[in-house]
Design a protein around this nucleic acid. Structure first.
Lengths: 332, 332
DNA sequence: TTGAAAGCGTTACCAC
DNA sequence: GTGGTAACGCTTTCAA
């Protein structure tokens, strides 16, 4: 029964609401015995401050918001979880607002949070144009952009260096002596696939290797997409012994199709995924992949969003994916 | 810049705040032209109602809360996602509050939500005692309990019939002519493992089969737990051709160990999991499992929590797990 | 050390 | 149709 208000406590304690407010907020200048008496009343009467009233007068809420496309996707669930941990440590409530991957709904998700007077928001947005975001960030000093880099607001971006990821995959394939190399990419119209591919190609080039255009296929970044892409690859009738795949889900789809066609992974073909989601440790063979350190990225984003004064001169926060070698790759 | 208040709009439009409030809330009795003029001002001045002020006077917030142990766990992520979908449809903000699996932190998560004046809360709690929950639900008519059944508040419970799940597994093993049967269960001190096992044993009995006590092992409900449990099983030196496993993660661990020891699934041993999480479709062999319809359960829970008048005479909401046959089982 | 009172931005009731 | 105004529960000067 959280019906008791600050007035009820004040009345019961024979003091003014001001005094009660002081003890609730650990304010100074309250007599030891009054404080104790009030505290007692608070717990026996089960008083809980009304956060709405507080937010109203303070003109801000003790909340942190996060905008993601979807809670069910393991990747975004991990992102939300990282933020949640920081939120708990700082005793602020987590507000999750989902927008599909469309500029409009991403924007809607953000305004919804702003209406709650939520000041600190970690935003994952692939579709809102740069300029819109820049304007938004200028008005809202506690917004943080995750998984995306925009020059003008770089000190409030937490992003992954996709190029390096591609490069590391290329380096590893080269080290393993592969030379007939394929790539399965995402067909989504966002930057990440392009960057990963570019990095991969540059890495290959640095080892004197090249990627045959016929061996680049695109599909939706899912298990089914991976299965589809692998079939397309096989149709090319062009030999390959290694594939760099856009993400782990696709990679598992690719492997599944390959094995159905009698090709063994890693004996006949090596596969590298991307993200290192839970899945990759459960699959057989366990997936060699590039770890997306989403947990620490999320935590840092939350910390940044919560910190009162965002330091514009802070070092920029680019993260590098780490190669995790498991069982889906092998030397030729 | 969401600085404009209702007063600013009123002033600019030369009307009273009351009138502005009416158009904001689509209230009746506003002149067509005044309404239009005000609407124009609202959008040009970028006015957004302060939700805290609104909640304060309305004594309730347009939010729905959910209490789960963890956002990162795919099962709970799916639960949260179902609720989120209903929340979006009803234009209410989703509040997620995580408590580990402990009575204390589950309780903390609930009070945190109540402080926000969140009335509708979907609670997943395994540890808070029945009586506490009953008292809580009596004071809060819009709470809903998910994944647990308590007689006294049964019309506000949405739960899965674990017994039937166990029974269906038993039926299927019997149909497949298995008779040397094992069980890998969770060692967590909650009801679900007991219920699933009881249902399984009853099902077996109805087919004249029995479960050798030596072939029941307990471990943590995770991949590693499954691996461990399978090793324990093998040590018994008691033959078995089928295993009923507590959940999919464990089942994948079990399969992994089995195959490492040279036993093929399903050729040498059939495995049935529980939950039908994403994982089970990605594993090889794809898992035969009992589907936990968490998505529809979550949606119904959300609907129930949001509905103004919870009907105490409503039919109780027990769900049955459905057997999903894939590749990890086969007839003897 | 304590109290009185002025807001914070809304909604809703009652006049006009 | 429209306006005035009292709440809602809290924090924070300013006085005492």
């Amino acid at each position: 029964m959280s019906k008791a208000t600050i007035k009820d406590i004040a009345r019961a304690a024979n003091v003014s609401v001001a005094t009660v407010s002081r003890v609730v907020n650990n304010g100074p200048k309250v007599g030891a015995k009054t404080r104790e008496r009030i505290q007692h009343l608070i717990s026996t009467m089960g008083y809980q401050p009304n956060i709405n009233a507080r937010s109203l007068v303070m003109k801000k809420a003790a909340t942190i918001g996060v905008v993601i496309p979807d809670v069910a996707d393991p990747f975004f669930a991990a992102l939300a979880n990282g933020i949640d941990q920081i939120a708990r440590e700082n005793k602020v409530q987590l507000l999750i607002s989902t927008g599909q991957v469309s500029a409009e709904s991403e924007m809607k998700a953000i305004t919804s949070l702003m209406q709650q007077r939520c000041e600190s928001i970690v935003i994952h947005s692939k579709k809102i144009p740069d300029e819109t975001l820049i304007a938004l960030f200028n008005d809202n000093p506690k917004f943080v952009l995750i998984d995306r880099y925009i020059e003008a607001i770089s000190h409030r971006c937490i992003w992954l260096d996709n190029h390096i990821g591609g490069q590391k995959a290329a380096d590893y394939f080269s080290e393993l002596n592969h030379s007939n190399i394929a790539c399965v990419n995402s067909n989504l119209d966002i930057d990440d696939p392009k960057e990963r591919l570019a990095g991969f190609q540059r890495g290959l080039a640095s080892h004197g290797l090249t990627l045959n255009d016929k061996l680049i296929t695109y599909a939706s970044p899912s298990l089914q997409g991976g299965e589809q892409a692998a079939q397309d690859l096989l149709k090319q009738n062009t030999p390959f012994s290694a594939i760099f795949v856009y993400n782990d889900a696709m990679a598992i789809g690719v492997i599944s199709t390959l094995e159905d066609k009698g090709l063994s992974v890693p004996n006949d073909v090596s596969v590298i995924g991307f993200d290192d989601v839970l899945l990759s440790r459960y699959s057989r063979p366990k997936l060699t992949t590039l770890r997306y350190p989403i947990d620490s990225m999320a935590k840092n984003a939350a910390l940044l969003a919560l910190s009162a004064n965002i330091n514009p001169t802070a070092q920029s926060s680019s993260y590098s994916p780490e190669l995790v070698i498991r069982e889906s790759t092998q030397a030729l």
